[in-house]
Simulated assay, not measured.
Amino acid sequence: MLDFVYYPVSAVLLLWHKVFGFAFGPDNGITWALAVVFLVFTIRLVLLKPMIRQIRTQRVLAKLQPEIKALQKKYAGDRNRQAVELQKLQKEHGFSPLLGCLPILVQMPVFLGLLHVLQSFNRTGTGFGKLGMSPELNAHTANYLFSAADVQSFLHARLFGAPISAAITSPANLLDAFSQFGGVPTTLSIAAVAIPLMLAASLFTHLNARASMARQNAETLANPQTALMNKLALWVFPIGALIGGPFLMIAVLIYWVSNNLWTYVQQHLVFERLDAEESVRRIE
Rank of each mutant, 00 (worst) to 15 (best):
V270T: 13
Q216V: 01
N143H: 05
M108N: 03
L155D: 06
F237P: 08
T57K: 14
L199G: 03
G183D: 02
K91A: 15
V257Y: 13
S212Q: 11
N122C: 05
N173D: 15
V257L: 08
I250N: 06
N80L: 04
Q65D: 08
A62N: 06
H93L: 07
S170L: 05
L232A: 13
V37A: 14
L131A: 15
R59A: 03
V193A: 03
S202T: 04
Q90N: 08
D78R: 04
T220I: 08
G113T: 05
V46P: 05
A177W: 01
L102M: 13
M229N: 08
G244P: 04
W256I: 09
G21P: 00
I195Q: 01
L242A: 09
R79F: 09
V257K: 11
K18R: 11
A214I: 02
Q225C: 04
N80D: 14
G183P: 13
I43H: 04
Y6A: 05
L39D: 08
G132L: 06
K91L: 15
L199I: 15
T187F: 02
E219P: 07
F20S: 00
D176P: 02
V60T: 14
I164P: 05
V117H: 00
A33E: 00
G21N: 10
P163C: 12
F160K: 09
H17Y: 01
P163L: 07
L145Y: 03
T169P: 05
